[in-house]
Design a protein around this nucleic acid. Structure first.
Length: 418
RNA sequence: GGAGGCUUCGCCUAGUUCGGUCUAUGGCGCCGCACUGCUAAUGCGGUUGGGGUCCAAAGCCCCUCCCGGGUUCGAAUCCCGGAGCCUCCGCCA
């Protein structure tokens, strides 16, 4: 949700943001109108209510005819108050709807345009030159690390088993990721992966992404698509004592329906319904959010570097940010079998947009409650296995394990076909 | 699944019998001031949050006693529905 004070002060800023996203500018003016309508409804209600309270206080003191007259008057007033109150309720609902319809203000500097208008900030590491690279599934099957067939037998398409050294590799990757986070001052968290509708809604995932999410109707709970959801909800309706960023690293399974992606990435574990991820999440004072965002990106890059992967960083264009993010950087690892870079991490600065919905605040230097900023970023995830296997494959069918992971694999430095 | 109890301004708590300055009591904590060589102790004052009005501040006003309805001129208080927590029973591990 956008800050209504900002909306009143500088609607043009928001219109410009909408243009940059390629979204309708009218949403801004609709919100301005809804805001004004609400305030006028509130004023009328409050005036009537004040009068009612004042008269009501006279009732017990009055007697006889005077009292009867007073009661008649207050009764009439009570009717009006009730109507005015209902009008406020409607105006508030309309305002909320208009507020939910407007995405976050895009950060200055983010590229304008849609999905293909990203800007490549840098390419890091040397792409391995592999003659006729095998893809991760071929490698994974030879290593007996990935079993898609049985995943499909048991659960359906886009499900898989990680087996043997594949399972160990994922655990090593996630543990290493978590250890990097802990070293950087993040509190490790293992959150619930089923959340209530209000939590899912608060994080902004029930809007355009609603069809991406698994819902359990019998209990009215949602399976999270990322631990960003339970981490963001962790401090819902709280006022935090923040001086700097409060950082959490959540380790969880993630569930995605992948509706509308039929036919895309059907081979292997690039796009699956269930995977595991260590996610960074920060609550911080808004003026520190930009710096924190760069910090999250730096941590992601540090990890990719330690995994000895070639990758590039892109500055995602405004139209591809999603509603909550003001700025987003993706790291994309080189996938030799595809000859392409593919997203492995993504970090977003949601400024105060998400926290306002969830009502997460902190006290500023004057002791006044203010909305926090929230940021998130991927640290380690199942998808990285794809890049690890493919980039580190050897002509003999083995796969080298990067030094950083060896300690988490009992010192092993290579995966070998079983 | 069944029965009962609880939910008040950061925490604890009074108030709910019998509806009306409850415009919510007290303690703890916190902040400020005074006293003191410093600390402690003590005294005095302040301290829920949201919103409206306003250029702004002050002030004033409205909402907020778990949530949503209802009764009433008037609800923390009465009625109905719901949520959360706790205890016991049952069931499953």
């Amino acid at each position: 949700m956008i800050d209504l004070r900002l909306l009143r002060e500088d609607p043009e800023l928001l219109r410009a943001s909408q243009r940059k996203r390629g979204e309708p500018v009218e949403r801004v003016d609709e919100l301005v109108a809804a805001d004004e309508a609400r305030r006028s409804a509130v004023s009328s209600f409050e005036a009537l209510r004040a009068e009612q309270k004042q008269l009501g206080r006279l009732v017990p003191k009055a007697a006889g005819e005077e009292k009867a007259a007073l009661l008649a008057k207050t009764k009439e007033l009570a009717e009006k108050v009730k109507r005015a109150e209902a009008a406020v309720g409607e105006a508030e609902a309309a305002l909320r709807a208009a507020q939910l319809a407007l995405p976050n203000l895009v950060e200055e500097g983010a590229p304008a345009g849609g999905e293909d208008d990203y800007v490549v900030l840098r390419e890091v590491g040397e792409k391995p030159s592999i003659a006729a690279p095998k893809d991760h599934l071929e490698l994974g099957e030879a290593l007996r690390a990935i079993d898609m067939e049985r995943g499909a037998k048991v659960s359906g398409a886009r499900f898989y088993y990680l087996t043997g050294q594949g399972a160990l590799l994922q655990l090593a990757l996630l543990q290493y990721g978590l250890s990097v986070a802990v070293e950087a001052g993040f509190t490790p968290m293992i959150p619930p992966v089923l959340v209530k509708p209000e939590t899912m809604e608060g994080t902004g995932f029930l809007g355009a992404h609603a069809s991406e999410i698994y819902h359990l109707p019998a209990d009215d709970l949602y399976l999270v698509g990322t631990s960003e959801v339970p981490l963001a909800g962790y401090h819902k309706d709280e006022i935090l004592n923040l001086t700097g960023p409060q950082r959490y690293a959540g380790w969880s399974s993630c569930f995605r329906r992948e509706a509308g992606s039929y036919g895309k990435d059907t081979r292997g574990i690039i796009r699956v319904h269930q995977f595991d991820k260590v996610e960074m999440f920060s609550f911080c004072p808004p003026e520190q959010a930009h710096e924190e965002h760069l910090r999250l990106l730096a941590i992601e890059e540090e990890l990719l570097g330690k995994l000895e992967l070639a990758y590039r960083v892109i500055d995602v264009a405004a139209g591809d940010l999603g509603s909550s993010a003001a700025r987003k950087y993706d790291c994309e690892a080189w996938i030799p079998s595809q000859g392409k870079y593919r997203e492995v991490t993504s970090t977003s600065n949601c400024t105060t947009f998400q926290a306002r919905r969830l009502n997460v605040r902190y006290r500023d230097a004057e002791g006044r409650p203010q909305t926090t900023a929230t940021l998130n970023g991927t640290l380690a995830t199942t998808r990285m296995i794809v890049a690890l296997l493919e980039q580190h494959q050897q002509p003999d069918g083995t796969v080298k394990i990067p030094k950083a992971l060896q300690a988490f694999l009992g010192g092993r430095d290579v995966l070998e076909p079983a």
